[in-house]
């Protein structure tokens, strides 16, 4: 079994995160780049299967100039090898380019199963898994809060908006998981040392095949025209409850016509 896990470097949600109004992109210098937590869980889901099936290969794939350290981290956790898509042509890539590039790298690598986080903590779009599945022409199971992997298929629970579904798919397939999946393991010292010797392949758009090239050359794309920072919220009155807090709060709500 060959499992490809999609991971992403994102600004740490514990720190300040910024867009740069000049470049209209994420200000990567202004925050710490980390392996997205949901991506760690996706790696964990693959490694949990590998723990019980030693001939499993786990390949982590990421795109973006500064993803080397998160790929090394996933290797330290136990992934077998890494693929890193880096190309100046992909600067400012939208969802369409990103999905096409990832699908090209996955096809080149070969796969039985692709696991991704349901949505990244920075973009929060949640459509990349669907786009990748369509490019690869395989079934899609998104938003899984449980995941059972077997040699022929996957099964899991998906909490859609108004109901919970148990869904299954034959392999090859693409799945995405939610934060209800188990926490990721920490890399061991031995894992961290070993990660430096594991294969990390760097790909450019020229390596991604004709379909990715076609999307990049001809598909419609979204362009960010403007980025505006919202003014920070200003705190209002903060009162200590001395027995009159309820009356003051009701007056406040009433003054805003909220009650």
């Amino acid at each position: 079994m060959k499992i490809v896990v999609l991971i992403k470097e994102v600004p740490d949600t514990w720190g300040e995160r910024r867009l740069d109004p000049g470049t209209r992109r994420v200000d990567r210098a202004g925050s710490d780049g980390v392996l997205d937590e949901i991506g760690e869980r996706a790696v964990e889901a693959a490694l949990a299967y590998k723990d019980g099936a030693a001939d499993t290969e786990v390949v982590v794939v990421s795109m973006g100039p500064s993803s080397t350290s998160i790929l090394r981290r996933a290797l330290a956790m136990g992934a077998t090898s890494a693929v890193h898509i880096v190309d100046d042509r992909l600067v400012g890539a939208d969802l369409g380019w990103t999905a096409a590039a990832l699908a090209g790298a996955i096809e080149r690598t070969g796969f039985d199963l692709v696991i991704a986080g349901g949505e990244s903590t920075d973009g929060r779009g949640g459509v990349i898994p669907a786009m990748v599945a369509e490019h690869l022409g395989v079934p899609l199971a998104t938003g899984l809060s449980t995941l059972q992997i077997s040699p022929d298929g996957i099964r899991g629970e998906r909490t859609a908006d108004e109901e919970t579904l148990t869904i299954s798919a034959a392999l090859p397939a693409v799945v995405s998981i939610t934060e209800r999946m188990p926490d990721a393991r920490f890399p061991s010292f031995k894992g961290t040392m070993g990660a430096k010797k594991k294969p990390l392949e760097v790909l450019s758009t020229a390596d991604l095949g004709p379909k990715a090239a076609q999307v990049i050359d001809t598909a419609a794309r979204s362009i960010v025209v403007e980025v505006v920072e919202r003014p920070a919220r200003v705190a209002g009155p903060k009162i200590v409850d001395d027995g009159t807090a309820v009356a003051q709060l009701v007056d406040f709500l009433s003054s805003k016509q909220l009650v």
Binding site: D94, L95, G96, A130, M131, A133, Q214, A219, A220
Partner: peptide, 17 residues
């Protein structure tokens, strides 16, 4: 989201979410 992603990839459309 699933439908939007699949449609955009199938048709080569631009997507904003």
């Amino acid at each position: 989201r699933d439908v939007a992603g699949r449609v955009a990839a199938r048709l080569g459309a631009g997507i904003v979410v």
